[in-house]
Amino acid sequence: MDLQTYTDLPLDERAAFELACARRGFAPMHFDVSSTEDIIDGHSERLVTIRRGCWTQSYRADRPGQWIHQFEADLVCRLFK
């Protein structure tokens, strides 16, 4: 398992995350973002975890941009209040 921080994310994902935050009135610094990557049977599985206060949500990063769309949907639903 390889633990990565926000700054370790690919540049395009960071830019998309920052844009999603801005559209919903947040800044990236409002969140603690980490990512783990496991190699299982030669297949890479990535999980991105977002924390804010007592709220935590994890997203699978199987497809490019997938977790960012799910994160923004959670912002719309006010999951991270």
Rank of each mutant, 00 (worst) to 15 (best):
16 A>Y: 06
16 A>S: 12
16 A>G: 07
17 F>G: 01
17 F>I: 03
18 E>M: 04
18 E>K: 11
18 E>L: 00
19 L>I: 08
19 L>R: 14
19 L>M: 10
20 A>P: 07
21 C>L: 06
21 C>E: 08
21 C>T: 07
22 A>S: 15
22 A>R: 15
23 R>K: 14
24 R>V: 02
25 G>P: 08
25 G>Y: 15
25 G>F: 10
25 G>E: 13
25 G>A: 14
25 G>T: 13
26 F>A: 12
26 F>Y: 15
26 F>D: 08
26 F>C: 06
27 A>N: 07
29 M>E: 15
29 M>F: 09
30 H>Y: 06
30 H>P: 02
30 H>V: 01
31 F>G: 02
33 V>G: 04
33 V>D: 04
34 S>G: 11
34 S>E: 11
35 S>V: 11
35 S>R: 15
36 T>L: 10
36 T>I: 13
37 E>M: 09
37 E>T: 09
38 D>R: 11
38 D>S: 09
39 I>K: 04
39 I>Q: 04
40 I>Q: 13
40 I>C: 09
40 I>S: 09
41 D>A: 15
41 D>S: 15
41 D>Y: 12
43 H>C: 14
44 S>F: 02
44 S>T: 01
45 E>P: 00
45 E>T: 01
45 E>L: 03
45 E>Y: 11
45 E>W: 05
46 R>T: 14
46 R>G: 06
46 R>Q: 10
48 V>D: 07
49 T>L: 04
49 T>P: 00
50 I>T: 03
50 I>N: 04
50 I>Q: 01
51 R>M: 07
52 R>D: 00
52 R>W: 01
52 R>I: 00
53 G>A: 13
53 G>Y: 04
54 C>W: 01
55 W>H: 15
55 W>Y: 10
55 W>D: 12
55 W>M: 12
56 T>G: 05
57 Q>Y: 06
57 Q>N: 09
58 S>Q: 12
58 S>E: 10
59 Y>I: 10
60 R>H: 10
60 R>Y: 10
